[in-house]
């Protein structure tokens, strides 16, 4: 054994290495960091910060990242994370696992009532979720947590929230005017081109089975197994989830269903599924709803534009 490896050599040597590397790998990047806020950055309010404390206390960071990469898809993937997004974060909550979704741009993706139902039990709004229920927090803290989640994305989140709020009053008014008006309002909402389109896939046992699977995985929590809008999320959501059975005889085409599933209904708890579901899956679940709950289908039919002679 070597005489050079004295206690002093070992201890001073390791400390010298450690301090040199801390200087280069930690202190230098910290001292030279760019603290310029990004174009979407804004300060959080006191209530949003209180919600962030709940986010930390309950370990949300272990399943949710807040860091969108250039290779990501899904909600929020339109914007790659920049260091200027994090200038007010202490600690930074990047996360190391995606057991759940990335939340960088979650603000304004859903209205508040969707979040309330989701926090009470995530499977109410997302049947496939494996997130813990947070009913134990109580409504006050759930509301605070919601404020924080709705702030994620900074100014982008604010503009999405403004969009939700703008449509919330309209979608609520339409619901309160009664089912006849509501059904018409919802359909008129869809561009005319889409209203004319029939479901291009023929109704088949296989197609309906696929549609049912999608319905169970994505829709059932709100619209319920029998399509009456009385799923477990219903008590927290207003206007309540749509009862499909009121749509019979109202010329609901495959195109209308497709458009609403694809884009969601802003202001209501109905999210868009354009990031979750590819085209055929949306047609399949739309046809399942048409056959199963509305009892009126146009699947595999010719396009109305052809029938109407355009």
């Amino acid at each position: 054994m070597s005489q050079e490896m004295t206690p002093r050599a070992v201890i001073t040597g390791s400390l010298a290495i450690l301090f040199a590397i801390v200087f280069v790998m930690v202190f230098w990047p910290h001292a030279t960091r760019d603290m310029t806020p990004s174009e979407i950055f804004r300060e959080r309010t006191a209530e949003e910060n209180a919600g962030r404390a709940l986010y930390i206390a309950n370990g949300c960071v272990y399943c949710h990242s807040q860091s969108v990469r250039s290779i990501d898809w899904g909600n929020g993937a339109e914007r790659i994370a920049q260091s200027g997004d994090y200038v007010a974060d202490r600690p930074v909550l990047l996360g190391s696992q995606r057991t759940g979704v990335d939340l960088s741009q979650e603000g304004g993706e859903h209205p508040d009532d969707w979040h309330f139902a989701h926090f009470i039990n995530p499977r109410f709004t997302r049947p496939n979720s494996i997130m813990p229920p947070f009913e134990y927090l109580g409504m006050d803290r759930i509301k605070r947590l919601t404020r924080y989640v709705q702030s994620l994305g900074g100014k982008s989140a604010d503009s999405r929230m403004a969009h939700q709020d703008y449509w919330k009053t309209r979608v609520t008014a339409a619901y309160e005017a009664g089912p006849v008006h509501n059904a018409k309002w919802l359909s008129d909402h869809v561009p005319e081109g889409w209203r004319m389109v029939a479901n291009p896939y023929p109704t088949s046992v296989a197609g309906l089975a696929r549609g049912q699977k999608i319905y169970q995985d994505f829709c059932m929590g709100c619209h319920s197994p029998i399509g009456d809008g009385m799923g477990p999320a219903q008590p927290w959501i207003y206007p309540p989830p749509l009862n499909f059975t009121i749509l019979k005889g109202r010329e609901i085409s495959g195109g209308i269903l497709y458009f609403q599933i694809m884009n969601g209904i802003p202001g209501s708890a109905m999210p868009h599924f354009k990031a979750e579901l590819e085209s055929e899956k949306i047609w399949d679940v739309g046809n399942f709803v048409a056959v199963q709950f509305i009892n009126q289908r146009d699947a595999g039919g010719i396009r109305r534009s052809e029938a109407g002679g355009q």
């Binding site: 910290h30 960091r33 200038v87 600690p91 930074v92």
Partner: peptide
């Protein structure tokens, strides 16, 4: 924690 992205570096 540190403030900003260098918190993650540390």
């Amino acid at each position: 924690a540190l403030l900003g992205i260098s918190d993650a570096v540390l």
